[in-house]
Each structure stands twice: as C-alpha cells, then as structure tokens.
Simulated assay, not measured.
Amino acid sequence: MSSHSLIWAAVPHNSDGVVFQVRIVHGLQRFYVSRRVLEHVFDLEPKATDARQLELFYKFLKRILARAGIKRSVAGSDTVALQATDFIVQSRSDSNSMQRSISRTTI
C-alpha cells in the first residue's frame, strides 16, 4: 500500500476505536478499527484513553494500512470496518493443508 497515503485519523466521540481516511486509487476511503480489534490484535489495554488508541494506531500504521489496502483497494463511499480476522495471516503450509483437506472431501 506504499502508493496510498493517510489523510487523517481520529477517535470517534464514543471512544470506540479509530476512524481513518486514506487516499487510494482515484479517491478517498474511510476505514474503522474498533477498540475490540485494537485490544485483541494490538494488545490495547482495557479502558485505554483516546490518546492511547491513537498512539497504538500510529505505532502499527504500516500494518493497518497494508490490511486496509487488501480489504478495499478501490475507493468507495462507505466506511470499511477492519475485523480481527483481517489481521490473521495464514502460513503457506496452513493454506496448502487446508486446500488438500478440501479437495479430499470433494472427491
């Protein structure tokens, strides 16, 4: 996502995560990372302040922007929520064994 750039990031008024906007192909896309995702994926402590949520967001900015680019590579009008599962990276051996097990059950 090196060609994409962060425009702004903020914590919404309900203190639940971070909303951010990125310039991507032909436009702007807004994304949302909830407090729950920040807690489960990035080890945000419970009841962390808004400032701490933003601090953690910027600490993992490259990783978050990379996943956002995979989830939505062309701009749209809606806000895209990033889920914890978006940050799970399967190893190649895991995906190969999954493919083998799927092909065995379909034979």
Rank of each mutant, 00 (worst) to 15 (best):
A48F: 07
V37K: 03
D86C: 11
D94H: 12
L65Q: 11
D43K: 12
H40P: 01
V19A: 08
T85L: 13
R23T: 11
D43L: 10
Y58R: 09
S15Y: 05
A81F: 10
A10N: 06
V19W: 06
T85I: 12
S97C: 06
R92L: 15
L6H: 04
G27R: 08
D16N: 15
S95W: 06
S73L: 07
V11F: 03
I70C: 11
S34R: 05
N14K: 02
V41A: 02
A84K: 09
S101G: 09
V18I: 11
P46M: 13
S95F: 03
I64S: 02
L56A: 02
R92M: 12
I88S: 09
M1H: 11
V11E: 00
G76V: 08
H4S: 12
Q99P: 00
K47H: 09
G76S: 13
I7C: 10
F20Y: 15
A84F: 05
H4Y: 11
I88Y: 14
V18F: 00
R52W: 03
W8L: 06
L54G: 07
F87R: 05
K59L: 05
R35I: 00
R63H: 07
V25T: 12
M98S: 14
Q53D: 01
F42G: 04
F42H: 03
S91R: 14
V80W: 04
H26F: 10
F31S: 02
L44I: 04
S77L: 10
V74P: 02
A68L: 05
S93A: 11
Q21H: 01
S34C: 10
R30G: 02
K71Q: 12
R67C: 09
